[in-house]
Deep mutational scan, measured.
Amino acid sequence: KRVEVKPYVLDDQMCDECQGARCGGKFAPFFCANVTCLQYYCEFCWANIHSRAGREFHKPLVK
C-alpha cells in the first residue's frame, strides 16, 4: 500500500488571490496543486483564474 500525504491542504486559509474580498471573508475551499499555481482560491477566483488559457485543466483539491 501507498499513502499520499498532501500537507499543503490546510484548513482555514484565505483566498490567495482576493484575501476574502470577493467571497465575503469566507475561507478558500480550493487549492490548486499545479506547480504554476500552488495557491488557495475561493470559488469566484478559482473560476476566474482557471478559465484562462493553460489553466483550464487544473484540478482543485477541495477541503
Score class of each variant (00 low, 15 high):
N34H: 03
F44G: 12
H50P: 01
F57T: 15
H58W: 00
V62D: 07
M14L: 07
N48W: 10
F27Q: 10
G25Y: 07
K6C: 09
P29K: 10
Q39D: 02
K6H: 06
K6W: 04
K6Y: 03
Q13C: 07
D16A: 14
G24H: 05
A33Y: 12
K1F: 05
N34D: 10
Y8N: 15
D16V: 11
L61Q: 15
D16Y: 15
R52I: 13
G20M: 01
Q13Y: 06
L10T: 13
D16C: 13
Q39I: 02
M14T: 14
P60F: 00
C15A: 03
L10F: 12
V5D: 13
R2C: 05
Y8Q: 12
A53W: 05
V35G: 14
R52D: 15
F57H: 13
V35C: 05
L38K: 15
D16L: 05
R52C: 09
Q19Y: 06
F27R: 11
P29G: 11
L61F: 08
C32T: 01
I49N: 06
R52V: 14
G54Y: 07
G25C: 04
E4N: 07
V5F: 09
K63V: 08
E4F: 06
L61N: 13
C23G: 10
N48V: 12
C37H: 04
D12G: 10
C45A: 01
S51C: 13
K59F: 02
H58D: 01
G54P: 12
Y8F: 10
H50E: 02
F30V: 06
R22H: 14
G20T: 02
G24N: 15
C15H: 03
G24Q: 14
A47D: 14
L38A: 13
Y41R: 01
G20A: 03
F44Q: 15
Y8W: 09
G25P: 04
F44W: 10
W46Q: 02
Y40W: 10
Y40T: 04
F57S: 15
V9E: 11
Q19K: 15
A28R: 05
E43S: 12
C15L: 02
P29T: 09
C32M: 01
C45T: 00
E17I: 08
E17K: 08
V5E: 15
C42M: 00
C23N: 08
I49E: 03
D11N: 11
R55S: 11
F31M: 03
P29N: 12
D12E: 07
V3A: 14
N34V: 05
T36Y: 07
A53C: 09
V3W: 01
E43L: 03
L38D: 10
E56M: 07
Q19P: 02
A47P: 07
K59E: 15
F27L: 11
C32Y: 00
Q39R: 15
R22W: 04
R52S: 14
C37K: 01
R55E: 07
T36W: 04
Q19M: 09
N48G: 14
P29C: 07
N34E: 13
L10R: 13
C18A: 01
R52E: 14
I49Q: 08
Y40K: 06
F27V: 11
G24T: 04
V9D: 14
G24F: 06
Y40F: 09
F44C: 13
N34G: 08
F44E: 13
D16M: 09
M14V: 09
F27K: 14
A21R: 11
A28K: 09
D16S: 15
V3N: 06
L61G: 14
C45W: 00
G54C: 06
C42P: 00
Q13R: 12
C37A: 01
V9C: 12
P7I: 00
I49F: 10
A21N: 11
G25R: 09
E43W: 07
C45N: 00
G24R: 08
A47I: 10
Q19H: 08
C15E: 02
D11W: 05
E56R: 12
R22T: 05
P7Y: 03
A21D: 07
Q39S: 12
H58Q: 01
N34I: 01
C37I: 02
W46N: 04
P29R: 10
K26M: 09
A33C: 07
Y41P: 01
P60E: 03
F57Y: 11
P29M: 07
D12S: 07
R2T: 08
Y41K: 02
A33N: 12
G54V: 04
F27I: 06
R52H: 13
C15I: 02
A47G: 10
V35K: 12
K26A: 11
Q39N: 08
G25M: 08
F27S: 11
A33P: 10
L38C: 14
H58Y: 00
C42I: 00
V5Q: 14
D11L: 05
W46Y: 07
E4L: 04
M14S: 14
K59I: 05
H58M: 01
W46G: 02
C42Q: 00
W46M: 04
Y40S: 07
T36G: 14
S51E: 14
K1M: 06
F30N: 09
P7L: 02
V3K: 15
D12K: 12
G25D: 09
N34F: 04
F30R: 09
C45V: 00
D16N: 15
D12C: 04
A33I: 11
H50Y: 01
P29F: 04
V3D: 15
K1Y: 05
Q39V: 12
P7M: 05
Y8A: 12
